[in-house]
Nucleic acid binder design. Structure first.
Lengths: 132, 132
DNA sequence: TGGTCTGTATGCATGTTATACTACAGAAAT
DNA sequence: ATTTCTGTAGTATAACATGCATACAGACCA
């Protein structure tokens, strides 16, 4: 197993906020893909590796991976492993605007719920995304 | 019922992402408090109002409100209603920087996972947050 | 006093989540 | 051929989430 994958596994976190484990895992892996820590065509940690790393049941991990596959983010190959999909799906303009709106509102709400100015988050995003 | 409360109710949204209803509600109400749409000492929408507005069961709303009370964000008074707590807890500067970083990275990742430029999200956040 | 509104509580039913355990089948290496 | 690793599948169990229905008790007002 690559140390890249070990780094990825080390970054997976579970929180007890009432959000199901498979949902947290699904979203964190989607983030890893989205921010290029997992590249198209690259192999992901196996379900068993994730299950061991997070100390959860294999079926729980499978549930998360199953949803990622249904989203088109990954490709699961029986007996071989699981791979990041070759081309992440593009969004069309209408969907895009909705997505931007939703992402923005969510980020704003979350910032404010912690007493943080959303503009500070926005500026940080601009700074980080230029560097990326 | 005040139109303020109606506006608040109108902004509550439920999504089918696998996150339980009570968690979504809890977090959205926490946002409303965090962004000043609900002020310390102010009465919240009643559990029944929220249940009706969101078309969910009273017990589900009660679950969310119960968690907010345990967090110290609200005070529930039997037979009278529910109120925003007098002094919402503050975040200290170290935590703040971490929170901003985390929120930003998460927003970036999610944008990218949908093939969206994070900067577009950032600009939308700036626009929306200025509008109040 | 009666009515209305509020949060509180309970029972039942259904579906979901997560775990543990077991086993199968395919792919690859020895 | 055997072993190891992989995803796939099934079963049973317990806890959780939600809805529905019902009822209680307190607060408030006419």
């Amino acid at each position: 197993m690559h140390t890249d994958q070990q780094l990825l596994l080390d970054r997976l976190r579970l929180e007890s906020t009432g959000v199901p484990i498979y949902v947290q895992l699904r979203d964190q892996l989607l983030s890893a893909i989205g921010e290029g820590r997992l590249k198209p065509g690259e192999q992901m940690p196996t379900m068993r590796q994730v299950a061991v790393a997070l100390k959860v049941d294999l079926n729980t991990v499978r549930h998360a991976y199953g949803e990622l596959e249904r989203q088109g983010a990954i490709v699961i190959k029986r007996a071989k492993g699981t791979y990041v999909a070759a081309a992440p799906p593009k969004t069309d303009p209408d969907d895009r605007a909705h997505l931007i709106e939703g992402l923005s509102l969510r980020a704003i709400a979350e910032a404010r719920s912690h007493g943080i100015e959303p503009a500070m988050v926005a500026r940080r995003i601009l700074k980080l995304s230029k560097g990326g």
